[in-house]
Design a protein around this nucleic acid. Sequence first.
RNA 1: GGCGGGGUUCCCGAGCGGUCAAAGGGGGCAGACUGUAAAUCUGUUGGCGUCAGCCUACGGUGGUUCGAGCCCACCCCCCGCCA
Length: 424
Amino acid sequence: MTGIYEELRQRGFLYQCTDEDELPRLLEREPVTFYVGFDPTASSLHVGSLVPILAMVHMQRAGHRPIAVTGGGTALVGDPSGKTEMRQMLTREKIRENARSISAQLAFFLDLDGEKGLAVDNIEWLEGLGYIDFLREIGRHFSVNRMLAMESYKQRLETGLSFLEFNYMCLQAYDFVVLCKEHNCVLQMGGQDQWGNIVAGLDLVRRETGRQAYGLTFPLLTDSSGAKLGKTVAGAIWLSEEGTSHFDFYQFWRNVDDTDVGRFLKLFSFLPVEECERLGKLEAPAINRAKEILAYELLKVVRGDKAAADTYLAVAQQYGSADPEGHIETSSSITALTAAQVDNTPTLTVSATEAAAGIRLTDLLVRGGLCPSNGEAKRMVKQGGARVNEEQITDIGAIISAEVLALTPIIKAGKRRLFRVEID
RNA sequence: GGCGGGGUUCCCGAGCGGUCAAAGGGGGCAGACUGUAAAUCUGUUGGCGUCAGCCUACGGUGGUUCGAGCCCACCCCCCGCCA
Protein backbone atom coordinates (compact mmCIF):
# COMPACT_ATOMS: atom_id res chain seq x y z
CA MET A 1 0.00 0.00 0.00
CA THR A 2 1.29 3.45 -0.93
CA GLY A 3 1.65 6.04 1.77
CA ILE A 4 -0.62 8.98 2.10
CA TYR A 5 2.10 11.40 1.08
CA GLU A 6 2.70 9.50 -2.11
CA GLU A 7 -1.04 9.27 -2.70
CA LEU A 8 -1.38 13.04 -2.42
CA ARG A 9 1.57 13.53 -4.69
CA GLN A 10 0.16 11.26 -7.38
CA ARG A 11 -3.18 12.96 -7.22
CA GLY A 12 -1.62 16.34 -7.79
CA PHE A 13 -2.14 17.88 -4.38
CA LEU A 14 1.45 18.76 -3.67
CA TYR A 15 3.12 21.96 -4.67
CA GLN A 16 5.76 22.61 -2.06
CA CYS A 17 6.82 20.90 1.14
CA THR A 18 9.15 22.15 3.83
CA ASP A 19 10.69 18.73 4.32
CA GLU A 20 10.13 16.18 1.59
CA ASP A 21 12.21 13.55 3.31
CA GLU A 22 11.03 13.68 6.87
CA LEU A 23 7.34 14.50 6.50
CA PRO A 24 6.43 11.37 4.50
CA ARG A 25 8.16 9.24 7.11
CA LEU A 26 6.39 10.98 9.96
CA LEU A 27 3.04 10.44 8.27
CA GLU A 28 3.69 6.71 8.02
CA ARG A 29 4.99 6.44 11.54
CA GLU A 30 2.20 7.98 13.57
CA PRO A 31 -1.11 9.85 13.41
CA VAL A 32 -0.34 13.48 12.78
CA THR A 33 -2.49 16.42 13.77
CA PHE A 34 -2.54 19.02 11.02
CA TYR A 35 -4.46 22.15 10.17
CA VAL A 36 -5.80 24.13 7.27
CA GLY A 37 -7.20 27.62 7.59
CA PHE A 38 -10.29 28.90 5.81
CA ASP A 39 -11.08 32.59 5.43
CA PRO A 40 -14.65 33.45 6.35
CA THR A 41 -14.86 36.14 3.70
CA ALA A 42 -18.02 34.68 2.19
CA SER A 43 -20.91 32.70 3.59
CA SER A 44 -20.07 29.62 1.59
CA LEU A 45 -16.97 27.96 0.31
CA HIS A 46 -16.59 27.67 -3.44
CA VAL A 47 -14.87 25.17 -5.69
CA GLY A 48 -11.51 26.80 -5.06
CA SER A 49 -11.59 25.32 -1.57
CA LEU A 50 -12.10 21.81 -2.83
CA VAL A 51 -8.40 21.14 -3.11
CA PRO A 52 -7.65 21.73 0.58
CA ILE A 53 -10.87 20.04 1.63
CA LEU A 54 -10.23 16.87 -0.33
CA ALA A 55 -6.64 16.82 0.83
CA MET A 56 -7.93 16.88 4.39
CA VAL A 57 -10.38 14.09 3.65
CA HIS A 58 -7.61 11.92 2.24
CA MET A 59 -5.47 12.62 5.26
CA GLN A 60 -8.24 11.84 7.69
CA ARG A 61 -9.01 8.59 5.91
CA ALA A 62 -5.36 7.72 6.33
CA GLY A 63 -5.70 8.10 10.06
CA HIS A 64 -4.46 11.62 10.59
CA ARG A 65 -6.28 14.26 12.54
CA PRO A 66 -7.45 17.46 10.82
CA ILE A 67 -8.13 20.77 12.49
CA ALA A 68 -10.29 23.01 10.37
CA VAL A 69 -9.52 26.54 11.42
CA THR A 70 -11.90 29.28 10.42
CA GLY A 71 -10.13 32.60 10.46
CA GLY A 72 -12.73 34.63 12.32
CA GLY A 73 -9.91 36.53 13.96
CA THR A 74 -7.52 36.87 11.07
CA ALA A 75 -10.33 37.90 8.73
CA LEU A 76 -10.62 41.04 10.84
CA VAL A 77 -7.19 41.90 9.54
CA GLY A 78 -7.22 40.49 6.00
CA ASP A 79 -4.58 38.39 4.30
CA PRO A 80 -2.59 40.39 1.75
CA SER A 81 -0.86 37.28 0.32
CA GLY A 82 -1.14 37.13 -3.41
CA LYS A 83 -3.70 39.87 -3.60
CA THR A 84 -3.39 42.98 -5.68
CA GLU A 85 -5.25 45.20 -3.32
CA MET A 86 -6.84 45.30 0.04
CA ARG A 87 -10.11 43.56 0.33
CA GLN A 88 -13.22 45.27 1.54
CA MET A 89 -13.31 45.15 5.32
CA LEU A 90 -16.10 43.01 6.67
CA THR A 91 -18.03 43.69 9.83
CA ARG A 92 -17.50 41.52 12.86
CA GLU A 93 -21.04 40.18 12.69
CA LYS A 94 -20.69 39.21 9.06
CA ILE A 95 -17.42 37.42 9.71
CA ARG A 96 -18.85 35.52 12.63
CA GLU A 97 -21.84 34.49 10.57
CA ASN A 98 -19.64 33.38 7.67
CA ALA A 99 -17.34 31.45 9.97
CA ARG A 100 -20.27 29.53 11.36
CA SER A 101 -21.65 28.46 8.03
CA ILE A 102 -18.25 27.59 6.62
CA SER A 103 -17.50 25.51 9.64
CA ALA A 104 -20.77 23.68 9.13
CA GLN A 105 -19.91 23.05 5.50
CA LEU A 106 -16.57 21.58 6.42
CA ALA A 107 -18.25 19.22 8.83
CA PHE A 108 -20.05 17.73 5.86
CA PHE A 109 -16.75 16.49 4.46
CA LEU A 110 -14.84 15.74 7.60
CA ASP A 111 -15.41 14.22 10.98
CA LEU A 112 -14.74 17.18 13.24
CA ASP A 113 -16.36 16.01 16.45
CA GLY A 114 -13.21 16.24 18.50
CA GLU A 115 -11.79 12.75 18.50
CA LYS A 116 -10.86 12.28 14.86
CA GLY A 117 -10.70 15.92 14.02
CA LEU A 118 -11.86 19.27 15.22
CA ALA A 119 -13.03 22.70 14.17
CA VAL A 120 -11.87 25.88 15.81
CA ASP A 121 -12.01 29.59 15.09
CA ASN A 122 -8.92 31.65 15.71
CA ILE A 123 -11.02 34.47 17.12
CA GLU A 124 -10.95 32.34 20.27
CA TRP A 125 -7.36 33.19 21.00
CA LEU A 126 -6.75 36.27 18.89
CA GLU A 127 -9.46 38.46 20.31
CA GLY A 128 -8.06 38.59 23.79
CA LEU A 129 -4.50 39.33 22.76
CA GLY A 130 -2.98 42.37 24.35
CA TYR A 131 -1.09 44.54 21.92
CA ILE A 132 1.98 45.10 24.06
CA ASP A 133 2.15 41.48 25.18
CA PHE A 134 1.86 40.30 21.62
CA LEU A 135 4.60 42.60 20.42
CA ARG A 136 6.93 41.54 23.22
CA GLU A 137 6.31 37.82 22.97
CA ILE A 138 5.67 37.29 19.29
CA GLY A 139 6.60 40.47 17.48
CA ARG A 140 10.19 40.28 18.58
CA HIS A 141 10.66 37.09 16.57
CA PHE A 142 9.78 38.73 13.29
CA SER A 143 12.30 40.49 11.14
CA VAL A 144 10.77 43.28 9.12
CA ASN A 145 13.69 43.04 6.71
CA ARG A 146 12.87 39.45 6.02
CA MET A 147 9.14 40.03 5.74
CA LEU A 148 9.65 42.77 3.20
CA ALA A 149 11.69 40.40 1.08
CA MET A 150 8.94 37.79 1.00
CA GLU A 151 7.17 36.87 -2.17
CA SER A 152 3.74 37.17 -0.60
CA TYR A 153 4.27 40.87 0.01
CA LYS A 154 6.09 41.62 -3.18
CA GLN A 155 3.12 42.65 -5.25
CA ARG A 156 1.69 44.68 -2.46
CA LEU A 157 4.87 46.61 -1.95
CA GLU A 158 4.26 47.99 -5.40
CA THR A 159 0.61 48.85 -5.01
CA GLY A 160 0.43 49.61 -1.35
CA LEU A 161 0.25 47.66 1.86
CA SER A 162 -1.26 48.89 5.09
CA PHE A 163 0.24 48.20 8.48
CA LEU A 164 -2.93 46.31 9.36
CA GLU A 165 -2.41 43.75 6.64
CA PHE A 166 1.31 43.67 7.22
CA ASN A 167 0.56 42.11 10.59
CA TYR A 168 -1.45 39.26 9.13
CA MET A 169 1.50 36.94 8.82
CA CYS A 170 2.36 37.30 12.49
CA LEU A 171 -1.16 36.40 13.52
CA GLN A 172 -1.31 33.34 11.32
CA ALA A 173 2.07 32.24 12.61
CA TYR A 174 0.76 32.65 16.11
CA ASP A 175 -2.19 30.42 15.24
CA PHE A 176 0.21 27.64 14.50
CA VAL A 177 1.91 28.08 17.87
CA VAL A 178 -1.40 27.95 19.69
CA LEU A 179 -2.53 24.84 17.80
CA CYS A 180 0.78 23.17 18.41
CA LYS A 181 0.69 23.84 22.14
CA GLU A 182 -2.97 23.03 22.63
CA HIS A 183 -3.56 20.25 20.16
CA ASN A 184 -0.16 18.95 19.30
CA CYS A 185 -0.52 20.16 15.73
CA VAL A 186 2.71 19.94 13.75
CA LEU A 187 1.66 20.37 10.14
CA GLN A 188 -0.01 23.18 8.31
CA MET A 189 -1.32 22.88 4.78
CA GLY A 190 -2.63 25.62 2.50
CA GLY A 191 -2.72 27.12 -0.97
CA GLN A 192 0.55 27.98 -2.62
CA ASP A 193 0.03 31.64 -1.78
CA GLN A 194 0.21 30.62 1.85
CA TRP A 195 3.81 29.46 1.68
CA GLY A 196 5.15 32.60 3.31
CA ASN A 197 2.65 32.49 6.14
CA ILE A 198 3.21 28.80 6.72
CA VAL A 199 6.95 29.08 6.82
CA ALA A 200 6.67 31.99 9.23
CA GLY A 201 4.48 29.71 11.34
CA LEU A 202 6.98 26.87 11.54
CA ASP A 203 9.71 29.29 12.48
CA LEU A 204 7.68 30.69 15.28
CA VAL A 205 6.67 27.24 16.50
CA ARG A 206 10.30 26.26 16.72
CA ARG A 207 11.25 29.39 18.57
CA GLU A 208 8.33 29.23 20.96
CA THR A 209 8.10 25.51 21.60
CA GLY A 210 11.33 24.08 20.27
CA ARG A 211 9.35 21.63 18.18
CA GLN A 212 9.85 20.70 14.58
CA ALA A 213 6.79 21.52 12.51
CA TYR A 214 6.06 21.02 8.82
CA GLY A 215 4.36 22.87 6.03
CA LEU A 216 2.89 21.82 2.74
CA THR A 217 1.19 23.75 -0.02
CA PHE A 218 -1.28 22.89 -2.75
CA PRO A 219 -1.03 24.13 -6.32
CA LEU A 220 -3.27 27.00 -7.28
CA LEU A 221 -6.10 25.48 -9.19
CA THR A 222 -6.54 26.90 -12.66
CA ASP A 223 -8.29 25.68 -15.75
CA SER A 224 -6.33 25.04 -18.90
CA SER A 225 -6.56 28.69 -19.93
CA GLY A 226 -4.80 29.70 -16.74
CA ALA A 227 -7.82 31.31 -15.13
CA LYS A 228 -8.61 30.66 -11.51
CA LEU A 229 -11.09 27.86 -11.36
CA GLY A 230 -14.67 28.45 -10.51
CA LYS A 231 -15.12 32.14 -10.97
CA THR A 232 -17.54 33.17 -13.63
CA VAL A 233 -19.25 36.44 -14.33
CA ALA A 234 -22.41 35.05 -12.81
CA GLY A 235 -20.36 34.51 -9.68
CA ALA A 236 -18.34 31.72 -8.19
CA ILE A 237 -19.35 28.08 -8.28
CA TRP A 238 -20.37 27.55 -4.69
CA LEU A 239 -20.32 24.40 -2.67
CA SER A 240 -23.65 25.19 -1.09
CA GLU A 241 -26.85 24.38 -2.91
CA GLU A 242 -28.23 27.84 -2.16
CA GLY A 243 -25.32 29.34 -4.05
CA THR A 244 -25.23 26.98 -7.02
CA SER A 245 -27.94 24.48 -7.89
CA HIS A 246 -27.14 20.79 -8.32
CA PHE A 247 -27.87 21.19 -11.99
CA ASP A 248 -25.51 24.14 -12.49
CA PHE A 249 -22.85 22.48 -10.40
CA TYR A 250 -23.06 19.37 -12.53
CA GLN A 251 -22.97 21.36 -15.75
CA PHE A 252 -19.93 23.28 -14.61
CA TRP A 253 -17.89 20.08 -14.36
CA ARG A 254 -19.54 18.45 -17.33
CA ASN A 255 -18.17 21.26 -19.48
CA VAL A 256 -14.57 21.44 -18.36
CA ASP A 257 -11.85 21.46 -20.99
CA ASP A 258 -10.79 18.06 -22.32
CA THR A 259 -7.28 18.54 -21.04
CA ASP A 260 -8.45 19.12 -17.47
CA VAL A 261 -10.47 15.94 -17.04
CA GLY A 262 -7.78 13.59 -15.79
CA ARG A 263 -6.27 16.16 -13.47
CA PHE A 264 -9.61 17.02 -11.92
CA LEU A 265 -10.64 13.39 -11.53
CA LYS A 266 -7.48 12.69 -9.57
CA LEU A 267 -7.99 15.67 -7.32
CA PHE A 268 -11.70 15.54 -6.75
CA SER A 269 -12.84 11.96 -7.00
CA PHE A 270 -11.85 8.96 -4.99
CA LEU A 271 -11.48 6.74 -8.03
CA PRO A 272 -8.12 5.01 -8.30
CA VAL A 273 -5.34 7.16 -9.74
CA GLU A 274 -4.74 4.81 -12.68
CA GLU A 275 -8.39 4.90 -13.60
CA CYS A 276 -8.47 8.70 -13.48
CA GLU A 277 -5.51 8.82 -15.80
CA ARG A 278 -7.03 6.34 -18.20
CA LEU A 279 -10.34 8.20 -18.29
CA GLY A 280 -8.61 11.52 -18.80
CA LYS A 281 -6.83 10.18 -21.86
CA LEU A 282 -9.93 9.00 -23.67
CA GLU A 283 -10.25 10.27 -27.20
CA ALA A 284 -12.88 12.10 -29.16
CA PRO A 285 -16.44 11.39 -28.09
CA ALA A 286 -15.49 8.96 -25.34
CA ILE A 287 -13.96 11.77 -23.31
CA ASN A 288 -17.49 12.92 -22.69
CA ARG A 289 -18.11 9.85 -20.59
CA ALA A 290 -15.14 10.86 -18.47
CA LYS A 291 -16.69 14.28 -18.03
CA GLU A 292 -19.95 12.72 -16.94
CA ILE A 293 -18.08 10.65 -14.41
CA LEU A 294 -16.22 13.72 -13.22
CA ALA A 295 -19.40 15.74 -12.79
CA TYR A 296 -21.20 12.85 -11.14
CA GLU A 297 -18.39 11.99 -8.73
CA LEU A 298 -17.90 15.63 -7.81
CA LEU A 299 -21.55 16.10 -7.08
CA LYS A 300 -21.45 12.94 -5.00
CA VAL A 301 -18.60 14.24 -2.90
CA VAL A 302 -20.04 17.71 -2.46
CA ARG A 303 -23.80 17.19 -2.40
CA GLY A 304 -24.25 13.52 -1.64
CA ASP A 305 -25.17 10.32 -3.48
CA LYS A 306 -28.79 11.09 -4.09
CA ALA A 307 -28.23 14.57 -5.50
CA ALA A 308 -25.57 13.16 -7.78
CA ALA A 309 -27.73 10.32 -9.05
CA ASP A 310 -30.81 12.46 -9.56
CA THR A 311 -28.95 15.17 -11.37
CA TYR A 312 -27.03 12.82 -13.58
CA LEU A 313 -30.21 11.08 -14.62
CA ALA A 314 -32.05 14.33 -15.20
CA VAL A 315 -29.28 15.59 -17.43
CA ALA A 316 -29.00 12.27 -19.23
CA GLN A 317 -32.69 12.47 -19.95
CA GLN A 318 -32.26 15.88 -21.54
CA TYR A 319 -29.01 15.37 -23.38
CA GLY A 320 -28.56 11.65 -23.53
CA SER A 321 -25.69 9.72 -22.06
CA ALA A 322 -22.21 9.69 -23.55
CA ASP A 323 -21.89 5.94 -23.16
CA PRO A 324 -25.32 4.33 -23.08
CA GLU A 325 -23.96 0.87 -23.85
CA GLY A 326 -21.51 0.99 -21.00
CA HIS A 327 -18.42 0.27 -23.11
CA ILE A 328 -16.18 2.45 -21.03
CA GLU A 329 -14.95 0.76 -17.95
CA THR A 330 -15.11 2.53 -14.64
CA SER A 331 -15.39 1.71 -10.97
CA SER A 332 -17.68 4.68 -10.50
CA SER A 333 -21.14 3.92 -9.17
CA ILE A 334 -22.45 5.87 -12.14
CA THR A 335 -22.68 2.53 -13.97
CA ALA A 336 -25.51 1.46 -11.69
CA LEU A 337 -27.65 4.34 -12.85
CA THR A 338 -29.65 3.61 -15.91
CA ALA A 339 -32.86 4.79 -17.41
CA ALA A 340 -34.47 5.67 -14.15
CA GLN A 341 -37.24 8.19 -14.16
CA VAL A 342 -36.06 10.49 -11.43
CA ASP A 343 -36.16 14.02 -12.69
CA ASN A 344 -34.11 16.69 -11.04
CA THR A 345 -34.52 19.32 -13.73
CA PRO A 346 -34.84 22.82 -12.27
CA THR A 347 -38.46 23.78 -12.28
CA LEU A 348 -40.40 27.03 -12.38
CA THR A 349 -43.91 26.83 -11.04
CA VAL A 350 -46.53 29.22 -12.34
CA SER A 351 -50.07 29.71 -11.17
CA ALA A 352 -52.97 28.24 -13.11
CA THR A 353 -54.54 31.63 -13.67
CA GLU A 354 -51.53 33.19 -15.32
CA ALA A 355 -50.89 30.06 -17.33
CA ALA A 356 -54.41 30.24 -18.70
CA ALA A 357 -53.64 33.65 -20.18
CA GLY A 358 -50.34 32.55 -21.64
CA ILE A 359 -46.97 33.92 -20.50
CA ARG A 360 -44.45 35.84 -22.49
CA LEU A 361 -41.30 33.85 -23.24
CA THR A 362 -38.98 36.63 -22.11
CA ASP A 363 -40.74 36.73 -18.75
CA LEU A 364 -40.29 33.00 -18.35
CA LEU A 365 -36.59 33.25 -19.10
CA VAL A 366 -36.15 35.87 -16.40
CA ARG A 367 -38.31 34.11 -13.82
CA GLY A 368 -36.62 30.80 -14.50
CA GLY A 369 -33.30 32.45 -13.65
CA LEU A 370 -31.77 31.95 -17.08
CA CYS A 371 -31.58 35.66 -17.80
CA PRO A 372 -30.91 38.38 -15.24
CA SER A 373 -33.00 41.05 -16.93
CA ASN A 374 -35.71 41.54 -19.44
CA GLY A 375 -33.31 43.13 -21.86
CA GLU A 376 -31.02 40.15 -21.73
CA ALA A 377 -33.94 37.81 -22.25
CA LYS A 378 -34.92 39.72 -25.37
CA ARG A 379 -31.39 39.56 -26.63
CA MET A 380 -31.30 35.86 -25.96
CA VAL A 381 -34.49 35.32 -27.92
CA LYS A 382 -33.51 37.62 -30.77
CA GLN A 383 -30.20 35.83 -31.18
CA GLY A 384 -31.84 32.47 -31.38
CA GLY A 385 -30.73 31.15 -28.02
CA ALA A 386 -34.17 30.40 -26.69
CA ARG A 387 -35.96 27.12 -27.20
CA VAL A 388 -39.28 25.81 -25.97
CA ASN A 389 -39.41 22.05 -26.16
CA GLU A 390 -36.54 22.19 -28.65
CA GLU A 391 -38.35 24.60 -30.93
CA GLN A 392 -36.33 27.73 -31.51
CA ILE A 393 -38.29 30.91 -30.99
CA THR A 394 -36.92 34.23 -32.16
CA ASP A 395 -39.87 36.56 -31.71
CA ILE A 396 -39.15 38.63 -28.63
CA GLY A 397 -42.83 39.21 -28.06
CA ALA A 398 -43.72 35.52 -28.25
CA ILE A 399 -46.31 34.34 -25.80
CA ILE A 400 -46.28 30.78 -24.61
CA SER A 401 -49.86 29.67 -24.76
CA ALA A 402 -51.82 27.81 -22.16
CA GLU A 403 -51.82 24.70 -24.34
CA VAL A 404 -48.03 24.63 -24.54
CA LEU A 405 -47.65 25.37 -20.84
CA ALA A 406 -49.91 22.44 -20.08
CA LEU A 407 -47.23 20.16 -21.57
CA THR A 408 -44.81 21.25 -18.81
CA PRO A 409 -42.38 22.43 -21.47
CA ILE A 410 -38.62 22.63 -21.16
CA ILE A 411 -37.33 26.14 -21.70
CA LYS A 412 -33.73 26.40 -22.82
CA ALA A 413 -31.32 29.30 -23.00
CA GLY A 414 -28.37 28.21 -25.05
CA LYS A 415 -27.37 24.60 -25.05
CA ARG A 416 -26.58 24.01 -21.45
CA ARG A 417 -29.07 25.85 -19.35
CA LEU A 418 -32.68 24.91 -19.02
CA PHE A 419 -35.67 24.53 -16.74
CA ARG A 420 -39.12 23.08 -16.82
CA VAL A 421 -42.33 25.03 -16.41
CA GLU A 422 -45.03 23.50 -14.27
CA ILE A 423 -48.50 24.74 -13.57
CA ASP A 424 -49.45 24.87 -9.95
C1' G B 1 1.65 67.46 6.82
C1' G B 2 4.01 69.26 1.67
C1' C B 3 4.39 68.52 -3.68
C1' G B 4 2.88 65.68 -7.93
C1' G B 5 -0.43 61.93 -10.42
C1' G B 6 -5.10 59.60 -10.32
C1' G B 7 -10.56 57.87 -9.33
C1' U B 8 -14.99 56.13 -16.17
C1' U B 9 -19.72 51.02 -17.41
C1' C B 10 -18.01 43.25 -14.96
C1' C B 11 -12.17 44.17 -15.49
C1' C B 12 -8.34 47.07 -18.06
C1' G B 13 -8.60 51.48 -20.54
C1' A B 14 -9.88 55.97 -24.26
C1' G B 15 -12.78 60.03 -23.71
C1' C B 16 -12.32 68.14 -28.24
C1' G B 17 -18.76 71.18 -23.28
C1' G B 18 -23.25 69.19 -27.08
C1' U B 19 -23.64 64.00 -32.28
C1' C B 20 -21.70 59.84 -24.81
C1' A B 21 -25.05 54.61 -22.52
C1' A B 22 -19.69 56.52 -23.51
C1' A B 23 -13.80 54.22 -28.38
C1' G B 24 -10.63 49.83 -27.93
C1' G B 25 -9.26 45.33 -25.51
C1' G B 26 -10.40 41.42 -21.96
C1' G B 27 -14.17 38.62 -20.00
C1' G B 28 -19.34 37.04 -20.46
C1' C B 29 -23.58 35.50 -23.34
C1' A B 30 -25.75 33.73 -28.00
C1' G B 31 -25.37 31.82 -33.19
C1' A B 32 -22.50 28.84 -36.91
C1' C B 33 -18.97 24.65 -36.76
C1' U B 34 -18.53 20.55 -33.06
C1' G B 35 -18.49 16.34 -28.82
C1' U B 36 -23.07 20.06 -23.66
C1' A B 37 -15.11 20.46 -25.37
C1' A B 38 -11.14 23.56 -27.53
C1' A B 39 -9.92 26.63 -31.65
C1' U B 40 -12.20 29.75 -35.34
C1' C B 41 -15.85 33.09 -37.47
C1' U B 42 -20.38 36.24 -36.55
C1' G B 43 -23.50 38.90 -33.39
C1' U B 44 -24.22 40.95 -28.66
C1' U B 45 -22.91 43.03 -23.83
C1' G B 46 -26.77 49.41 -18.13
C1' G B 47 -32.29 49.18 -16.77
C1' C B 48 -37.44 49.73 -18.27
C1' G B 49 -40.67 49.96 -22.43
C1' U B 50 -46.36 47.78 -26.81
C1' C B 51 -37.77 49.24 -29.50
C1' A B 52 -37.29 54.85 -32.89
C1' G B 53 -39.16 57.00 -25.86
C1' C B 54 -37.92 57.26 -20.76
C1' C B 55 -34.72 56.34 -16.50
C1' U B 56 -29.94 55.42 -14.05
C1' A B 57 -24.59 55.72 -14.61
C1' C B 58 -18.51 58.36 -15.38
C1' G B 59 -15.65 58.88 -6.53
C1' G B 60 -19.16 62.59 -3.37
C1' U B 61 -21.60 67.37 -2.85
C1' G B 62 -22.60 71.94 -4.73
C1' G B 63 -21.80 75.47 -8.84
C1' U B 64 -20.92 77.73 -13.96
C1' U B 65 -23.65 76.90 -18.56
C1' C B 66 -29.38 76.48 -22.96
C1' G B 67 -26.34 71.93 -22.20
C1' A B 68 -20.96 68.62 -18.10
C1' G B 69 -17.22 62.17 -17.47
C1' C B 70 -15.48 66.52 -19.93
C1' C B 71 -15.07 73.58 -16.69
C1' C B 72 -14.95 75.62 -11.22
C1' A B 73 -15.14 74.91 -5.67
C1' C B 74 -15.02 71.98 -1.56
C1' C B 75 -14.82 67.00 0.31
C1' C B 76 -13.60 61.59 0.24
C1' C B 77 -10.37 57.68 -1.45
C1' C B 78 -5.89 55.63 -4.03
C1' C B 79 -0.69 55.94 -5.86
C1' G B 80 4.38 58.21 -5.96
C1' C B 81 8.19 61.33 -3.90
C1' C B 82 9.36 64.14 0.46
C1' A B 83 8.52 64.83 5.96
